[in-house]
């Protein structure tokens, strides 16, 4: 019985995997159709939790969502079956495309095509950056942090891995500072209120 479930998990995600172009969120409607409506593995209220967890953990949203749903249904082995299911077709397709590219990259037509494609890739990455900026740069501290990191990456050749750790640290420091400022403000108003009360007496 358990093996049947594991196999089903593998098959469902094997089918969903190839359709997850351009990041995992394109997968949400597919997950809804296959896993909620057809298989009834999770309820539709749970989808937001699935994607909250998938977005929190490092890695691709689509793969993370598969791992989490697999885990919910059949523990560690379920997570593994779902992960292999979603990974196998995409890895195979990317390897096939890659080998074609390495085979034909010196062909004049392909060389020309890739000149154009590289410009489009810059557009694609810029687009991803703009999309992320809308939800990540929300106030002055986040804007300053973004700006300083971009400058350090460009001109000081800051190591990108280091940038990630700096970000986590800066987040903790800024939030602590914000809390302290708020506390002081509250103390101040508290003190003022007290004074007003004493005067009115």
């Amino acid at each position: 019985m358990k093996w049947k479930l594991l196999f089903e998990l593998f098959v469902v995600f094997f089918k969903i995997g190839p359709i997850s172009f351009g990041g995992g969120y394109a997968m949400i409607p597919l997950i809804e159709r296959e896993i909620i409506d057809k298989k009834k593995w999770i309820r539709s209220e749970e989808v937001s939790e699935v994607f909250a967890i998938a977005g929190t953990a490092p890695g691709a949203i689509a793969v993370n969502a598969a791992i989490f749903i697999g885990y919910r249904l059949a523990g560690f082995l379920g997570a593994l079956a779902a992960m292999i299911g979603v990974l196998l077709p995409t890895t195979a397709i990317v390897m096939l495309l890659g080998s074609l590219y390495f085979l034909f990259k010196d062909n004049a037509l392909v060389e020309g095509a890739f000149l154009g494609i590289r410009a489009a890739v810059v557009g694609l990455i810029t687009y991803a950056g703009i999309k992320v900026a809308r939800t990540s740069i929300i106030d002055k501290p986040t804007f300053i942090l973004f700006f300083l990191i971009l400058l350090s990456l460009l001109f000081l050749h800051l190591n990108p891995i280091l940038a990630i750790f700096i970000g986590a640290l800066a987040g903790i420091l800024t939030m602590t500072a914000k809390k302290k400022i708020q506390q002081k403000r509250e103390e101040k108003t508290h003190f003022q209120n007290k004074q007003i009360r004493e005067i009115s007496k």
């Binding site: 990455i125 942090l145 973004f146």
Partner: peptide, 22 residues
């Protein structure tokens, strides 16, 4: 929440840095 508050602008910076570098 503090960690992610700081990580998100860095993620944006890294992506736009990749775009400029390319």
């Amino acid at each position: 929440h503090s960690i992610f508050y700081g990580l998100r602008p860095i993620v944006t910076g890294l992506i736009l840095f990749a775009a400029i570098k390319f």
